[in-house]
């Protein structure tokens, strides 16, 4: 196996192109202000069937306590941080709040079968592409934003960046990455049959962003 490694690297070195590296010109900043970022984020997200609701910073708990039962989303998955705490504190029938507090192996069938909606935070948002940026962790594990049929994400409007390039530079992503980082732009979709768009294939069928200001 290590022989293959050496042979491949040797061949790559032997056949080294003589080109000098090409100068890299990165895109300029767009110069968008906060409102422009919010508008672009909302428009792009909605264009791929993501819901966006702007609200006061502390209004999301009330919004969810009302909206989730209305939509028939009763079994709510939350993480182990303050979003889960806040939601658990106000949850009343018919909402059942379930915490993601055990390794997945011990409750996989339940996660895949018995959860209606997951509520997570978002690390940031990208205006130009209408993307949520998630760094799942022990508090909010990776499958939360993936397995339940509906994903609700809380995004602080102050955390909107123009685009991915701006975020990477501003937050020094090159210095080190977490286990998993994600850009999420809308609910899951496919166009594999006749190039026709169909939503809700393997990931969430609905993606709701609560934009907190």
């Amino acid at each position: 196996m290590s022989d293959s490694r050496q042979r491949i690297l040797d061949r790559l070195r032997a056949n080294r192109p003589t080109d000098v590296p090409t100068p890299m010109v990165y895109a300029k900043a767009l110069g968008w202000d906060r409102e422009r970022c919010i508008a672009a984020f909302s428009e792009r997200m909605q264009a791929v069937r993501g819901e966006v609701h702007r609200m006061q910073r502390d209004a999301w708990v009330g919004w969810l306590s009302q909206q989730l039962p209305e939509r028939g989303l009763h079994r709510v998955l939350v993480g182990n941080g303050r979003i889960g705490d806040a939601l658990a504190a106000v949850a009343a029938q018919p909402l059942q709040v379930r915490r993601y507090d055990r390794p997945i192996e011990s409750w996989k069938p339940e996660l895949f079968g018995d959860i209606d909606v997951a509520v997570t935070g978002a690390r940031a948002g990208l205006a130009e592409s209408g993307s949520l940026v998630l760094w799942p962790d022990a508090e909010e594990p990776r499958l939360m934003s993936l397995v339940p049929p509906v994903h609700v994400a809380l995004l602080d409007a102050d955390r909107l960046y123009e685009n991915f390039a701006a975020l990477i530079v501003a937050e020094h992503w090159g210095d080190g990455m977490p286990t998993n980082a994600l850009l999420i732009s809308g609910p899951s979709k496919t166009a594999d049959i006749e190039q026709t768009l169909a939503y809700g294939i393997h990931g969430p069928k609905e993606l709701v962003t609560l934009l907190l200001e």
């Binding site: 792009r44 791929v48 130009e128 592409s129 209408g130 993307s131 990455m177 977490p178 286990t179 998993n180 980082a181 994600l182 850009l183 999420i184 732009s185 809308g186 609910p187 899951s188 979709k189 990931g203």
Partner: peptide, 13 residues
């Protein structure tokens, strides 16, 4: 403009 998911994996659990 972008796909639904851009998944960056850097570590195992």
């Amino acid at each position: 403009p972008i796909t639904t998911y851009f998944n960056m994996i850097s570590k195992p659990r």
